[in-house]
C-alpha cells in the first residue's frame, strides 16, 4: 500500500496487558502480524484469545503495552481509534447483523456514513461482495429471514465493504450448525487466498492446518507457543500445547 513498505508488520502488539478488575486477562502478549499473513489463534475458552483480538480494534481497552495497526498507534486519540477501525473489519461469533436493516442496508451503512461513499456506488460494491460470498439473491431480505451460515457470510461482506486491510474473526463458526460451518469457512479460505491479512480466533483445526501461515496458542492470558501449522500440529513444544491438542484431536 502507498506510503508503507511492503515488509512492514501490519499489526504490532508489544507487551499488551489487560485486567478485568483483579483478573489478569492478558499477560504481556506480544505478536507481530505481517501483511497478507493469516494468523490463527487457538486455545481453551477463557484463555484470552477473544479479548486479545478485541483489543486490536479497541472493543476492549488494554491497560499497558503497545498496539500499532498499519503504522497507526492505538492510543487514546479518537482519531487514531477511528482510523484503525476503518482499516480493520471484524466478524463476530453471534454475527451481530443489524436486524432492522436489510442485507444490502447492513452492508452499505458504514461505507455511506463513514467512508462518505455515494449510495449508488456503495450498493454496487455491496452486490459484488454478496456475489463474492455467494448470496446475491438475499440482498433485500432481513437478517432474521436468513440461515446462520448466510448471516455470517453477510457479516463478512459487511466488514469487507469498508475495504479493510485487516480482517479479525472472533470465533466466526462457533454459533453455527455443523452443516453451515463449511460455507463460511470456504468464504474465509477464499479471502485468505486473495491476500487479505487475517487474524482468526477459531476452534476449526482443519481451517487452522490448511489456511494459517502461523498458529498462536494461548492459555491463561499468555501466548504459550507460536508456530507454523506443520510444526505446531506435529511437534508441539510446550506441555500445555500438547495437552490441549490431545484433548481436541481425540
Amino acid at each position: 500500500m502507498a506510503g508503507h513498505a511492503e515488509d512492514f508488520d501490519i499489526i504490532i502488539a508489544k507487551n499488551v496487558n489487560k485486567w478485568y478488575g483483579e483478573f489478569h486477562a492478558l499477560k504481556n502478549v506480544s505478536l507481530d502480524v505481517k501483511r497478507r499473513e493469516v494468523v490463527v489463534v487457538i486455545g481453551p475458552s477463557g484463555s484470552g484469545k477473544s479479548t486479545f483480538i478485541r483489543t486490536i480494534n479497541r472493543l476492549e481497552e488494554h491497560q499497558s503495552g503497545e498496539i500499532v495497526v498499519d503504522g497507526i498507534p492505538l492510543t487514546h486519540d479518537v482519531r487514531n481509534i477511528e482510523a484503525i477501525r476503518m482499516e480493520t473489519g471484524m466478524v463476530f461469533q453471534q454475527f451481530n447483523l443489524f436486524p432492522h436493516l436489510t442485507v444490502i442496508q447492513n452492508i452499505t451503512l458504514a461505507p455511506i456514513n463513514v467512508r462518505k461513499m455515494k449510495k449508488r456506488e456503495a450498493e454496487e460494491r455491496a452486490m459484488q461482495l454478496l456475489e463474492r460470498v455467494g448470496i446475491p439473491e438475499q440482498a433485500q431480505k432481513y437478517p432474521g429471514q436468513l440461515s446462520g451460515g448466510q448471516q455470517q457470510r453477510v457479516a463478512i461482506a459487511r466488514a469487507l465493504a469498508m475495504q479493510p486491510k485487516i480482517m479479525l474473526f472472533d470465533e466466526p463458526t462457533s454459533a453455527l450448525d455443523p452443516e453451515m460451518i463449511r460455507e463460511v469457512l470456504e468464504v474465509m479460505e477464499e479471502l485468505a487466498e486473495s491476500g487479505m491479512t487475517m487474524v482468526v480466533v477459531t476452534h476449526e483445526m482443519g481451517f487452522a492446518r490448511g489456511v494459517a501461515d502461523r498458529i498462536v496458542f494461548m492459555d491463561a492470558g499468555e501466548i504459550v507457543e507460536i508456530g507454523t501449522p506443520e510444526h505446531f500440529f506435529t511437534t508441539p513444544q510446550h506441555d500445555r500445547t500438547k495437552l490441549f491438542l490431545e484433548q481436541i484431536l481425540k
Binding site: F98, H100, A110, V114, A155
Partner: peptide, 30 residues
Amino acid sequence: IPKGQYEAAEALGLGSFDKLRFIILPQALT
C-alpha cells in the same frame, strides 16, 4: 439491545452519534 449491536457498529467505525441514529435508537424505539 444486545451488546453485540454496539460492538458491530463500533467495529465498522461508526461514530457515537451515527451508532445511536442508525443502529441503537431505531431498534430500541420500535
